[in-house]
Design a protein around this nucleic acid. Structure first.
Lengths: 207, 207, 207, 207
DNA sequence: AATGAATGAGAATTCATTCAT
DNA sequence: GATGAATGAATTCTCATTCAT
């Protein structure tokens, strides 16, 4: 894919990727201006369209780029862990660290989640299903020790609820947080309280 | 508000509302084309702009229209009910019925939630706070009998989890159902299974 | 011409004429809004177009109406006067009085002079030649006693210069004056100074 | 200013300037159609708006362009001349030559004088004060030898009358000449007759 | 006769994409 | 390969005029 772009020197590639992510994150697919991108990346108009054929392919390229980035997040999580609550605690930690390091990419992910431009809608859904949403979670959740759960509950449903709670909590917090610096130990503690609550309810009572 | 539009015959009004909701749901505020709307509604170009002065006012009208619609949903729910799971069971029932009747409106609500066009952002936030988001839920959740919950859990967090589960379940289902009319008793049953699970976990064990 | 309009009751006719003059004076032919006119005159949209067939004919009607008005100005001037400077002194007096009484019409005349909308340009020029510009002056200048002029000057050219000076002075003043109340005896005096200068130069030296 | 436009080849620039001047002269700012201009200039719709950002800037550019053009007129006039009638004879000669070369520009100047579109009014007034109206005349009239005038007349008023006569004569002639190329030596002669008349009247009698 | 809702051509402007240099 | 001027379809919105009631 995109061999012309791939053969550029690293520094130029990053300039373009950063400019494009910034613009798509800021304005969404439709409103994002290729003019803005080429200005920010300091390249010629024609160049952008010779690397990627059009705006849509540039966008889809970024989706793939970001998805690989996310993979890295989940690869940091201990694969042998079988306690789902421990896994989620680790994932939260990794995410918080990344947010601090590359807030733009998370903004872009938020923009992706809100995206509804018809040109990219179908491709976006496809990619979302493939790897964006829950990619890691599914992979990770293979090794979960189901015996810890109360015998009277459907484990799969319990896991759904944990996932949904994690996603909703994250969304709620990222709506609250507008400035970069607000992430906090307190936030992690609050999240652990939700996890504790669910663990106490879903796991067998400890003797 | 919008007296010229109000005085149209019902059939024409609905044609316009449906066309506009469909277009805004499909493409978001920015990309939604007034040309598309007038074509779909089969009215003249000038007419749309004589009813509503511009695209923005048409959009804001739809927000209000939809909000009244939502009010009807929640007004059907029994206000005296104190069991949160009963309340959610009722809400689910009402929503499912409505979805069958006007699937477009729920698509529109999803689009509203994703909307980030600056032209309508501030008005949208205002309306969201006023009545769109969780208006009913908050109102309804006032009377909840907290004594039914296990004494070792934070009731507010438990309610959060129930809300998030409801919203996430609904979203998951509406993604599965691509506007096909496959809502089903089975779906309601599945939802009740989630509610049952949560009730068994969050409420005190029955003697 | 315009029998439907002519048969309206006087009060309604005046409401329409005033509204139209006001709007054309304010905005010029092109920018003048028929909507504004019907709103100000408090009549129905269709009515205006049944009285006059279109905007252009309404405008041309006003030109004729105003021209008759101007006739009245000049009919007040003493027809037996043979001294051109006396005639101009009288005309100035009459004009100043009228301006105080109906400033709108003079605004309209100014707007006519500046008008360059292609739709009315040719008709406007025709009417200007016919009666608007210098109509009175030409009629009045029939009886002028040419023997008072110095024998070494072309009387027709001298009269041209007097006319041009009068028009230019009036234009200069009306550009200066933006508020109604600024007309003044001082202005009349200044004008008489120009007339005196020209009289002293153009007339034979008095013994 | 307008670097993209400036870097076009001369022939294309002139095509655009001529088309725009023609259209603005014909219809005034408001009614002038950018569609008409691009059609006449044979360029693409987007091009006009990439050279100048919008209709207003195109118009203001033309004002400046024309003002430079006028400067050339006055720079050809002998600055050391102190006889106002000689100055006007020279100016007339230059103007008549220019009219033959670019009759459009004078039409445009007339349209500018009549312009009252609110979008450009303030900028227009600013430029008028700066250089358009009487720039040359005022500059030139600094060196006038006032001792040549009769001692019983107000020199400033006499100069006003000469100016007004020049402007009115020019206007009268340009109304007669409907863009036909009938400027003529006869016209210049006629103008000199007016100047002679005024000189004989305003200057001291030669011994 | 009077009404005013409906019409649709036309306005200015934008922007992804192309292509000659 | 790189460039950026040129393109024109598509955008929202206006308003004189028509016509069914």
């Amino acid at each position: 894919m995109y061999p012309k772009f791939a053969s550029l020197e690293q520094e130029k590639k990053e300039r373009i990727i950063n400019a494009a992510i910034k613009e798509f994150a800021r304005s969404g697919y439709d409103r994002a201006s290729t003019n803005e991108i080429i200005k920010e990346a300091n390249i010629a108009k024609g160049s952008l369209f010779s690397y990627f054929n059009n705006k849509k392919e540039l966008y889809l390229f970024l989706l793939d780029y970001v998805s690989e980035f996310i993979d890295k997040i989940y690869s940091e999580v201990d694969c042998d862990e079988t306690d789902i609550f421990e896994i989620y605690r680790e994932i939260a930690l990794v995410k918080f660290k990344m947010y601090r390091k590359f807030p733009q990419i998370f903004d872009f992910l938020k923009a992706i989640a809100k995206e509804n431009a018809p040109e990219v809608k179908s491709e976006l859904e496809k990619r979302k299903k493939e790897y964006l949403v829950d990619r890691g979670t599914e992979k990770i959740c293979r090794n979960i020790d189901e015996t810890k759960f109360r015998s009277d509950i459907d484990v799969q449903k319990a896991i759904d609820i944990i996932n949904w709670t994690a996603l909703s909590f994250a969304e709620q917090q990222s709506n609250k947080i507008n400035s970069y610096a607000d992430f906090d130990v307190e936030l992690l503690r609050e999240w652990e309280r939700y996890l504790d609550l669910l663990r106490r309810c879903f796991y067998k009572a400890e003797e």
